[in-house]
Design a binder for these strands. Sequence first.
DNA 1: CCTCCACAGGAAGCGCAGGAGT
DNA 2: ACTCCTGCGCTTCCTGTGGAGG
Length: 397
Amino acid sequence: MDVFDREMSRETIFKDRNVLSPHYLPDHLPHREAEIERIMKILAPSLKGKKPNNIFIYGKTGTGKTATVKHVIDKLIQAKEKYNANVGSVYINCRTHNRKYQILLKIAEILYPDENFMGFASTHLYDRIMDYIQNTGVIYVVVLDEVDQVKDVDDLLYMLTRANDHLQQGHIAIIGISNNVTFMDKLDPRSKSTLMQEEMVFPPYNAVQLKSILSERVAQAFKPGMCKDSALELAAAYAAQESGDARYALKLILRAGDIADEKGEPVSDIHVKQARSAVEEDIVLDLISTLPEHPAIVLYAIASLIREGGKYPTLGGESGEKFLFSGEVYEKYEKVCREWARKPRSARWYREYLKELEMMGLITLTMSGKGIRGNTQLIKLAFSPDKVLSAIEKKFE
DNA sequence: CCTCCACAGGAAGCGCAGGAGT
DNA sequence: ACTCCTGCGCTTCCTGTGGAGG
């Protein structure tokens, strides 16, 4: 009996592990009923051949934006069959298709599945797309997930929305999804007003909501009684702390499930706690791997200063939390740069790196208030310095 | 109260790379 | 093949801000 045989014959606590994967689309989305209804209402005119409004959806990661939209699109396609309506749709993830050209190409490829558009100019793609819509009179819903990733958004939106003015029949409707608040400010006012005919904000889930989301999935993923209620509750509580991220909650339970499965035990609190540390490590590693060189060095400077205690250790003394001063970190950053034979960036740009690191959730920034001279940012590391340091050292070999 | 500190963050501009237009 | 244009990453310069210190 070899390893394969033993693994195959082993009893597992999972019924369907796949249900917990980040790509799994559940049939039922708890606590998003109102959002689903609103989007359906907005899209409903398309079934009668009328143009629906464009929608812009904003919400933090793990608030169910993508799942909700995909769910509604599924329903729209079902309704299309039922009422024999002339509607179509594409879902495009702009992280992988982050330029106007790639998006037009993707649309063209779907509209003309038998043709090869490689190497065609984007104006040609545009014309062909317009031809299709004009000739068929279809109402075409384009979902742009993570729109903020598109380099030439203004161009793209202008092109797609202005197209509608030239169409005698048919229409392009846009659903934009983003988790970046500042994205709206960077938009051209014209594209802003067209994209945001309807604006929706998806709030983060609270602990109670996360619990009910988890329990639905857990019931499908594990065999009966193989995931304790307390474990589920703990995972929900951890995720609620992490800004209500349902994806994080699912990751936790999946990881905890794997740990428990290995031992052949039902999932309990201990496994969730272990999973948390493991998932956190994954996240740190993942974030740092995509980090450009200089932000990584800045982060390294922060982590090593935290470990050394910093120039002004535990100032303020609030629960012993260690804060660093912006200037102090910049000096350290310059020093590390010299040691690693890199030319340090200017202090101005260093501040941009700090903001970037904050947006990624690697550090937290607080403006200095009472008790501190001058007006400066106080920097706190979101993860353990040792994990961060080793991850960055690994990155630089 | 004024001044100084220790920065924050806006504006302008620069060199470069890669596409679009011709 | 060539110019032109545009976005990106960055520097330089500058004005603004909130509290400390005298």
